[in-house]
Write a protein that binds this DNA or RNA. Sequence first.
DNA 1: CTGTTAGCGCTTTCAA
DNA 2: TTGAAAGCGCTAACAG
Lengths: 349, 349
Amino acid sequence: MAKTRARWQSGTTIKDVATHAGVSPMTVSRVLNNEPVVKPATRSRVMEAVKELNYRPNFSARSLAKARSFFIGLLYDNPSAGYVSEFLDGAVRRCRADRYHMVLENCSEADEEGGDLITETLSQANVDGVIILPPVSNNPSVIQAVENLGLPYVRIAPDGEENDAPAVGINDYEAAYQMTRHLIDLGHSQIGFIKGHPNQGSSHERYRGFADAMAAAGLTVDRASVAQGYFDFRSGIEATEALLSGDNRPTAIFASNDDMAAAAITMARKFDLEVPEDLSVVGFDDTPIAGTTWPALTTVRQPIAEMAEAAVGVLIRDLKGDSDAPVQKRWLLDCTIVERDSSAKPKPS
Amino acid sequence: MAKTRARWQSGTTIKDVATHAGVSPMTVSRVLNNEPVVKPATRSRVMEAVKELNYRPNFSARSLAKARSFFIGLLYDNPSAGYVSEFLDGAVRRCRADRYHMVLENCSEADEEGGDLITETLSQANVDGVIILPPVSNNPSVIQAVENLGLPYVRIAPDGEENDAPAVGINDYEAAYQMTRHLIDLGHSQIGFIKGHPNQGSSHERYRGFADAMAAAGLTVDRASVAQGYFDFRSGIEATEALLSGDNRPTAIFASNDDMAAAAITMARKFDLEVPEDLSVVGFDDTPIAGTTWPALTTVRQPIAEMAEAAVGVLIRDLKGDSDAPVQKRWLLDCTIVERDSSAKPKPS
DNA sequence: CTGTTAGCGCTTTCAA
DNA sequence: TTGAAAGCGCTAACAG
């Protein structure tokens, strides 16, 4: 017995369809690729044959002939879990519209291997282009590897402006500015801020947004009202303790991410402060945690899925090569503030 | 000027390498595929040529010739974010060992489309096999579509036993049993249980494990000590309230997942109960939330990455077809209990 | 151990 | 508007 052909192949080829429809394989190909030149009558004849034979094109063959794989690689490391999966949603959705597919590549070992692993993996994956998630989007050796392969790529939320490859990110500054305004508009003037990890660009942007909004409102930001955090829960605990132990206790705390905001809420209780009555707490990111704090957290929602769609869109456009105009290099999407229950007017004291 | 060839192609082919090394293309192919027959001297000569020419194999061509794509599809919907991303880690890692790659397919629209979308997408994706995450692993129309395509597949944590395709899951019953033992061993005898969503098989298994452990210890489980939840925070709040309002207030609460356990911790405070001094609370899943409750949550850790590795391993073995022996159909991996700060001995009253 | 031949299934190119 | 020929880059099968 002949070794069965791979099970995923339906077995029928374009040739069978051609015979069945009484045309040449080439015509079938044209129909399948939606080329407009085919006569409607012929087209429908072919379509019928396709249906009847339950024909499925072989995409390896197509890739080989077209020299395009219709696969897009996604390089990630281990950002917050929610980030990847929400990103995937957007990316996969956008891909489907153009019949592309996402291939995943974990880059956590990229550092030791110095990019060689990426090079090998990526060329095996046979992708037409690559999307690079943070923090990999700031990893020079990975970027280098991708460039050496000659692959077009889009970076997500990269820190610096070191190169001119397209990048998609969020407007951290603006979002932090608006969130600060939200607190100010509620009537707060003593606002504490918990910074993010100093090795990440967004930390600085968020702080800038906060500081500028305060300044614009004529409010002062002194040392005592800013605490250093590192994006994790534990550091949020310590930062909050510092903020709440001072003389001029703030009536609101703006943490640079949700984990630290959750910590602030927890810590408030140790100080016998009710949230939001005695202390408003707001975060950033709208991670799942925001829905499981008590009270539920007012926070900044990143349009992660939209970023994904944008990134895939840019890449596909590039791949198609139908944009001769110099492409825009940097997209900054706007966030939205999700008002839940952890922020309110300060108690009239 | 000729249309440039796709950028991901290095341009050099197996033929160039062959010429450069003074052998036939076939020999190069054998070297590249690690076939042991090649004479070491020849092999190294080829390797050098590969290096010098910076040759990268074209995987579409290989796929076409081998009738295998080396892609594995991952069908998911939207389980908890952490689940997907941890699963991916394990899957991608395991794939790399055999030079496979993961292609992602979102199935959230599968219900309306009745499987047709999946059929189309999947045949385009050109995958050799498929791994199906919950809750899709219980979606009959998706399973049907995959089977129609003749694709081998592995389901993750499916509920029933309706079919005999391979499946990988965790031993919910055993884990719940052990966690209950943990509480009993600490000295608790009044233990409240918050059930999970009744439409999921794991809810029942976890409850069974709890009930059996209690029975085995000679402890009674009455109506008042079991509350219905639905896996979300809100339902955990209500369930805990019910549990804590009764006459025989429990000294420990076992929630069927972490979200509900987080709710239990929150609710305990409303009742002026300290955790774990007055009330122990334990969860299930070890989601990121478990690290951001206060106190940190004792919970059951699922070996998600291991499940992924197992699933990919099974699939690849099947794909290789090198196992003639009837394959095992169902794997149940063991969980581990992560003891943190939310469980302790009951206060001597 | 290595080479030759003949495709894999589709698309490009050119001709009709 | 359609078809014929000639590969895309690689590997199975067979010879030697």
